[in-house]
Structure formats: C-alpha cells, structure tokens
Nucleic acid binder design. Structure first.
Lengths: 334, 334
DNA sequence: TTGTACGCGTTATCAC
DNA sequence: GTGATAACGCGTACAA
C-alpha cells in the first residue's frame, strides 16, 4: 500500500533518494549509509510493495508488445496444457518476442470471478480454454471489452478454434463398424464440456445409423482412477461386454487397461479400447493405446494467431477455425 | 505504439472522447455516432494497443496484491507443473486473493534472456523451477533486485525449497539392499539438473557402501520414448541384467515397462523397476509402478509462502527448506 | 541529495 | 446534449 512518497516523508528524504535506495543504486548515487538504512527501515515498517504497473509504465521504452493470457482450468486436464504451450513455443512468433504470454489458472465454472476480464487491466487479449457451459453462458451474456478466442468451444460472439467433435465421434463409430463390431460402448468423463458432448452425440448417432448397438454410456471422473473404477465395476457386474469401448479421455482409458489386466480381460482380444487426445503416455501403455489424435499444438498456434489478429484489429468479426482429428491405430484395437 | 493522445489529435477530438469510445462507453457518454466512427477508424489506422500498465495504474483501487511468477521450462517435465499448480490452488492463500499468480515459460539454460528478471517490471517475485547449471550460474553471478525462490535447487544467495535428493538416492539403495538385491542399475535423464545429479550421487555411494554392484548408468532423454529405447537396446545387447533398475524419471520408467513387455522380460519377476516423482499415471501402469513420491504439492505451497515472506520483507536472509520424499511400493517391485 | 517532468489511460469537473 | 481539460496513480531519472 505504501508508496515511495510516503516512505520519503516518513524518512525525511526525497522520493528520488528512496527510489535509489530501493533499487540498490545507493552506491552509485552516493547516498549515505545512514540515509540508506533509514529508508530501508521505513520501507519495511510500511510493508512497501513496488507498483509493477508504475514501474512498467515508466520504463516503456520496452516496446509495447501485446500481453496475451491463457485462461486454463486447474483440473485433471492439465496434461494438455503442456502440449498447448509447447505448440506455441515451437511454432509461433512467441520466440520473436512479438507478444508476452501469461497463463492464468481459473476454476471451472467460475470464469465470472476472473476480474481482469472486466477491468482489462491485465492483458490485451485472452484465450479461454475448458470453459464449462456456465462459463460460456457468462461469456455470451456479458459484454466484455477484451479480445477473446475460445479454444475448443463454439460461439457466435467470439472467434473460436475447434476440431469437429461430432465428426470425430462419427469417424470412430464408422471405423468400428468397418471392423465388424456390433456391440459397442462409450465412457464419458463427468465434466461440463461442449467438445465432449459433441463427440458423444456424433458417436451415438453414427452407431445408430450404422445399425450397431451401444450397450453402455458410462460416466466417471476424467482421471485414470475414474476409468479404472468404472471398468472394474462394469466387468464385475455384467455378463455382456461390448467388443469395444470408446473413452472420451485418455487417462480414463489408461486406468481401464489396468482394470482389464487385473480382472483377466485381455486387451484387445476380449475387449478393445480406444482413447481420446493422444496424450504422451498413451504410446507407452501396455498395449499401446489406440486413440484419437487431437491437434492441440496446431490449435494452440491458431488460437494465438487469431487473438493477435483480433488485438491488432486486422480482424473485426469473429472467425471459426475448424481442425481435423485423426484416429491413431495402435495395439489396443485389433 | 499509438497513444490515445495521438488518436485524439488525428481524429480532432479530446483524449476523454477517445477513451470513452474505445471502452464502449460512447453511448453512456452520448458521443455522436460520427465521432465514434472517426475515432475507431483512426485507432485502427494507428494500430492502437492499450497500455495495460497505465490502465492498471489508474484503476489501482484494485488493492495492491503481490504478483508472483513461476518460471518453468517448457519441456517434457511439464507433467509436474500441473501438480505444482494444483498444490498452490488447494493449499495456499491463492484462493483468498492474497496474490496473483503468473506462469512464465522459459527455455532451459536461457534464464538470462528473461528480461523481466532485470527490469522488475512484471512481478514482485519469482519462483524459478528447473534451472539448469548455466541458469544457476547466471543467478549466482548476477545481482537481481527481485525476490526469488529456487525450487529444487540449492543456493546460498536465494531461498530454496528442496527434497534431500542425496538421501532419496541413498534410501532407494538401502531398500534394494534389504530386499536382497546384489546387482542394480540406474537410468538417468539427460537433463541438466542438480536434483538428478544428487539422486544419482546418493544412490551410487550407498550402493558402494552396502557392497552391491551397480552394473549400469544409462542415459537417455527424459521421456517415455527415452526409457523405452534405452531399455530395448540394453535388453537386446547384454546378457547380464541387473535385478532392478532405478529410473530417475517416471516417464522413462513407463517407457521401460513397455519395452520389457515387448521383449518378454517380466516385471517384476525378471526385472524390477522403480521410478521417481509419482506422476499421476504411475499408479495405473501395468504393473503399477513403484516410485519415489516427490511432495510437489507441499513444496509448491512452501515456495509460494517463502516468496511472499521475502516480498513482504518478513524474511531478510535466504532460507532453505528441506522436504522428505517417500518410496511408494507398488507392483513393479517384489 | 533533491525536485520535478514524464509515461498513459481514466474520470470527474467544467464549458459551450 | 457534446465534448474538452486536467488531476491522478506511482516509480524513474535527469537537471540542479
């Protein structure tokens, strides 16, 4: 709370002196040791905290580069953020210093509590990831005067970067149909996510269209533990298993593989398993997991570019970018 | 580059008007549509980018809270950052709004290129994670006027938060000795890391002290792929395998398990495997991985608290905090 | 060591 | 009704 002016007053010196002392330039400026000490003591008493904004405003020879923030939820989906960031780092203008990047965690469903979206005092634009339905609702209803890009969500109001999740669901179903599956099942994480809903919808409608039977829609939490326990109880309880299970989350599929091992269900012979995202680990499970590759890295770069274009006012109306996902066949399917 | 004053001049209006238009308050302030349009056009021509610092400085009824930054490398170790952040979120004063948290990626070995450490124009303090030897060197030599805490590194100059990595290495060796192992091996990621070096050192010296034989020190990159390929070539080439292999990285251990499966080496019967970190996935490999639990969450909170204390000048000399890691026995060891 | 102009957006006050 | 003016926030750095 205290400013250097208050310190100056209490210590009986000028603001210049305080500034020098506090920045370790007292030697260069030949401030006396006594004065220095006095200033330091008062600063401590007053709990001085330098104002970053003021400092920065003054030093603004630092060329003005846009500050962009990634709003990401701090939950189990954290694994994808590393791919997102690596995508940005490797393939964008980040390394040329064309923008500054911040990551700001937020709690799922509580986007409305992120003050800086209103005040505009933190960043020039934001990429919002993992927005829940409430969060989207909030965004649609509120008039934010900050450039935004939504990652993996749809909106008419803002630019978006997506994969066609319905198509993904459909393609997986078609693949299973080609492989001769008749009875299938799907496992859905209990998170509020448009993308997940669309994958489910696309899958179920294609299953129906193709004349297959969907035996189960199972739900549990997003993690390995969720996949593990949902499959354990499925296997224990029911006689009839599908021939394949599509997990809308890789960690869940990983957990499921262990459950199968423990209960003597052979993957892929007794049960085939397909995941979603292509997390790093999935190539090294036993057996390696067949999964849908989500082009996170490319989408990350696209999100940043969209946002920069919006900030620079090269883009005046919202744009929707659509990417394609791709089924990676590994050993957990036949 | 352009300021609202320049826009005002070019558009032939006052700065107040420009500000109102740019903030969507033109209605409320009853600015004529023509003026509004003129301002908007000029702003676009000039490529106006609002100065976040100026904005923020003005709005500083926003109570001053310290801004702290986590400097984290954007490499494979990304999995740990999610645990780090979750630790902060769940157990610290973050949720009370006592500080603002930013994450700033940096490239390993290039900490010296992080300008804001010099200028002090971004944050009130920083937690530095994954510093390489060069980075540490840089920190020791340079006089940064910014409060710092080093995560998982030692320093006399700055406060640090660590686990006793030598002790970890020693304890693993002792456990193996108790279990009757005679011939062991260790796999080391090829990253520059004090913590890794200490674990290795502690392990090797204890192995020697206890009269066991260390057959291999294998090195490859930090990832699943690294562990996979190093073990594949080990098994293919050599006749004599150790009875246990200690991996100083969980992902490597995960990759190794798959390599073993593929080559018919049974885990743990033919070869026992121990990892390090207790990544989320390790509880769900097949078999579940015995690993060293790194108390990332607790260390994260401690780092934040140390840093806040330093920023608030409650702490005037560097403090070193030491945590204990813990061996989690699962099924990849007998 | 001190005094003070400066950086830039916001907003309350004042004027036409 | 519309719009201009100026004070303000706070740390920095240069002239005195």
């Amino acid at each position: 709370m205290a400013t250097i002016r208050e310190i100056a007053e209490k210590a009986g010196v000028s603001v210049g002196t305080v500034s020098f002392v506090l920045n370790g330039k007292s030697e260069k400026m030949r401030i006396s040791a006594a004065t220095k000490e006095r200033v330091l003591v008062v600063a401590r008493e007053l709990g001085y905290l330098p104002s970053i904004s003021a400092r920065r405003l003054r030093n603004s020879e630092e060329k003005q580069t846009p500050i962009i923030t990634i709003l990401w939820t701090l939950d189990a989906r954290a694994s994808l953020i590393s791919r997102f960031l690596q995508g940005i780092q490797k393939k964008s203008s980040f390394k040329d210093g064309m923008f500054e990047l911040l990551i700001q965690p937020y709690e799922n469903g509580k986007l409305n509590e992120v003050e800086s979206l209103h005040t505009g005092t933190r960043f020039n634009g934001a990429i919002i990831a993992n927005a829940s339905e409430e969060d989207l609702d909030y965004l649609e209803k509120t008039n934010l005067n900050v450039p935004l890009v939504l990652y993996q969500r749809y909106s008419k109001k803002y630019s978006t970067v997506n994969v066609d999740s319905k198509l993904t669901g459909r393609e997986v179903a078609e693949y299973l149909f080609e492989k001769g599956h008749k009875k299938v099942g799907i496992v859905v994480p209990t998170i509020s996510s448009q993308a997940v809903d669309y994958r489910l919808e696309g899958f179920l409608s294609a299953v129906k269209d193709l004349g297959m039977e969907n035996l189960y829609i199972l739900r549990d939490n997003f993690t390995e533990q969720g996949g593990y326990s949902v499959i354990k109880s499925l296997i224990k309880k029911s006689k009839k298993l599908p021939t394949v299970l599509f997990f809308l989350s890789d960690p869940m599929a990983v957990g499921a593989i262990l459950a199968c091992h423990e209960l003597g269900v052979r993957v892929p012979d007794d049960l085939e398993i397909i995941g979603h995202d292509n997390d790093d680990q999935t190539a090294y499970t036993f057996p390696p997991l067949t999964t849908v590759h989500l082009p996170v890295e490319e989408m990350a770069v696209a999100s940043v570019n969209q946002l920069l274009d919006t900030i620079n006012q090269r883009l005046t109306t919202p744009v929707s970018l659509q990417f394609r996902s791709e089924l990676l066949i590994r050993k957990s399917t036949k």
